[in-house]
Design a protein around this nucleic acid. Structure first.
Length: 237
DNA sequence: TAGGCCATCTGGTCCT
DNA sequence: AGGACCAGATGGCCTA
């Protein structure tokens, strides 16, 4: 036979697993108040009360046996209350931890959004998934670094950087897509298109799969061979 | 309807 | 002790 307090606690447990919206969730104070109210309302354990007159006050029924019963009842009440408060404390900590975790994930998502915003994308309303954002950022950084490296090799003195990567091209280089020509320049697919000479290329180790027709980012001023070794792409959604 | 993506909850672990 | 971080579980939403 479930006591009111147990019912109350199980209600709280149910609330904790009910889903994402915590707007209707009990606050810590509400938890405590509710639990304490339930504990006091439930009074002594049911078996002690059953079928007996009110003998809760020791002064009314003197005697060692009754005193012992009263002590047991009090111990029981104390134990129930401490368990309830412990439960409430745990619950309160859990709710706070959930809140922190939610904020942490929101911050992480905000950082991902910031990363998306500096990555070239096409079409404009395409939103990269998290994993796509990370992979593409990896590729993009690799491509820019490779651009600088080749520029330095070809045109020592540093002027090449500005010529190859004018400010307006960083970070949004793409321009109008030309899937057909790009796909052609990539060959018939990722595997066919990338006889990668550079093992450090992201494409050499990742499962990037480019399909003909996918929008491909082309770097207008990049050497052609860099295009072949730089699988920057945005997959269709 | 299955699969992918995502948000959230949760308990464990590590760090300050 | 409390917070940050992490990974697993779960359920909702969307799309092919």
């Amino acid at each position: 036979m479930p006591a009111p307090l147990e019912t109350c606690i199980s209600d709280l447990d149910c609330a904790s697993s009910s889903g994402s919206d915590l707007s209707g969730f009990l606050t810590d104070e509400e938890d405590c108040a509710r639990l304490q109210q339930a504990a006091s309302a439930s009074g002594p354990p049911a078996p002690a009360r059953r079928g007996a007159p009110n003998i809760s006050r020791a002064s009314e029924v003197p005697g060692a046996q009754d005193d012992e019963q009263e002590r047991r009842r009090r111990r029981g009440r104390t134990r129930v209350r401490s368990e309830a408060l412990l439960h409430s404390l745990r619950r309160s900590r859990r709710v706070k931890a959930n809140d922190r975790e939610r904020n942490r994930m929101h911050n992480l998502n905000a950082a991902l959004d910031a990363l998306r915003s500096v990555l070239p994308s096409f079409p404009d309303d395409t939103k990269l998934t998290k994993i796509e954002t990370l992979r593409f950022a990896y590729n993009y950084i690799w491509a820019l670094a490779e651009t600088l490296r080749l520029a330095d090799q070809g045109l020592p003195g540093g002027g090449a950087r500005e010529r190859l990567l004018p400010p307006q091209c960083v970070p949004c280089l793409p321009g109008p897509p030309s899937p057909a020509s790009d796909a052609e320049s990539w060959g018939s697919g990722a595997a066919a298109a990338s006889p990668l000479s550079d093992p450090s290329s992201p494409a050499a180790s990742e499962d990037f799969t480019y399909r003909p027709g996918d929008p491909v980012f082309s770097f207008p001023s990049l050497p052609k061979d860099l295009l072949h070794t730089t699988p920057c792409f945005i997959p269709y959604h």
